[in-house]
Nucleic acid binder design. Structure first.
Lengths: 236, 236
DNA sequence: CATAAAGCATGATGAATATCATAGAAGGCC
DNA sequence: GGCCTTCTATGATATTCATCATGCTTTATG
């Protein structure tokens, strides 16, 4: 982790339009600039660990982060992936908890850190920021409820198909038409909630069935409809 | 479902102190009385169905409600249990979604219905209610993240042990020392995320091992420490 | 109260999935 | 470039768990 100078103000941030700070009055957005600190993280570096007390929130300017829990056997379970414009770590801070999860970077990632005091000031102030966070938390809660039902009821194959689609929706494709995130087989496994070997087998099966193409760490979707059908996903 | 007259105002509600309307200025609480409608639901009756658009929120004055999703095979997955003082249905309303889940009463339940317009007025107003809902959603989100990890990593036995403890914390014990909620084996199964038969077997095993006592629909905890250990729960 | 319906219980069986073992491939590093 | 480590792949095996089948018990309902 390396502290880096502020390159630009939040008002000019390219990811703001898709962040939670969208639709917030400009003068309030400018408040953020005052206290924020910019950091650069390398792949594998950690924003925060499960169990720590939150000191602020992280706004991802560029990069990708996995948020995961460590189970009792030490196995990881990824609960969310975040990218450009996402605010990470707000749940624990605003819920008054310790971090439930660890956040680790999947690639070189640049973040703006907004200290606790400042965020709370803005949230408790006359701003509509509390409202925005509330809506955001409610939406994440709806997604979590879906994930719970899927984990409890779907097979590994079905979950794998769905996860591939969700990850694609999250990060899109790169120039080569591959899903634009580099995940190891173990990481795919902890997204799906299965063993690494099972994950590898299912991915190979999918390739043989013409659903996907495996290109090293990257996955290219070949048959979107097939995946939708297999994952029993009703396209939203 | 039966409409019933307002028995008392929110300010005098016995469950307010533990609800989200706690710590809200009294004059704002009194606003709720204006538009609220009280209903009485019988066991099995439904507050709202998955897929509907929310028209308001339900505040449980007395009773117990299960919130569940129906999986693609039609099997239910209970994602939460709610009781006295809990506000049900806020997630979809405030998240701007349709209901992700269905809410059904486990026993005779009395609720106050607060219409959408009125709740939104209060939330968007100068009140700290948005803040309270935000905190609440963040806390539920933390719990959901735990549930996801447990479902993905723990065995049915371990999850069963944990669920028994969680349900006891939620509803406490009745005069006979049994967990104070009447759940069928099928409902326990859909809390744990397993088949009814597996659930029955594990419960019988637990009884044989001296962990619990099965008394019809009710469960009495015999060996709390044993359950904690089995469920790999770190007592909070 | 009688009868049906729902819920509970237990055994047998098979499918899904985790675990263990091993080997080759790829990637990072001096 | 060569070596070591990590990642990927695949087979063999064990375990967990769901499903099906059947009988008993409790609970609703006329």
């Amino acid at each position: 982790m390396k502290k880096v100078p502020q390159l630009h103000r939040c008002a000019e941030c390219s990811t703001r339009y898709k962040s939670i700070f969208n639709q917030i009055p400009l003068d309030e957005v400018e408040q953020v600039d005052v206290g924020k600190v910019c950091y650069s993280f390398k792949r594998g570096e950690v924003l925060f660990y499960e169990g720590q007390m939150p000191q602020g929130v992280y706004c991802i300017e560029k990069g990708k982060v996995k948020i995961f829990n460590t189970g009792s056997e030490g196995r990881d379970q990824i609960v969310r992936l975040s990218g450009n414009g996402d605010v990470v770590g707000y749940r624990a801070l605003l819920g008054g908890d310790r971090y439930e999860s660890t956040a680790s970077c999947l690639e070189e990632t640049e973040v703006c850190f907004i200290p606790k005091k400042q965020l709370l000031n803005m949230v408790t102030g006359q701003s509509c920021l509390a409202m925005r966070f509330m809506q955001h938390a409610c939406q994440e809660l709806g997604q979590a409820s879906k994930i719970i039902t899927n984990l409890a009821q779907k097979t590994v194959r079905e979950r794998m198909a769905e996860v591939i689609l969700v990850v694609q929706e999250t990060f899109g494709d790169n120039e080569e038409g591959q899903i634009d995130v580099r995940l190891s087989r173990e990481e795919w496994a902890s997204l799906v909630g299965t063993a690494t070997e099972s994950c590898i087998r299912v991915l190979s099966d999918f390739q043989q069935e013409g659903l996907i193409l495996l290109q090293g760490k990257f996955i290219k979707i070949q048959d979107r409809k097939g995946l939708l059908k297999l994952g029993k996903v009703t396209e939203s």
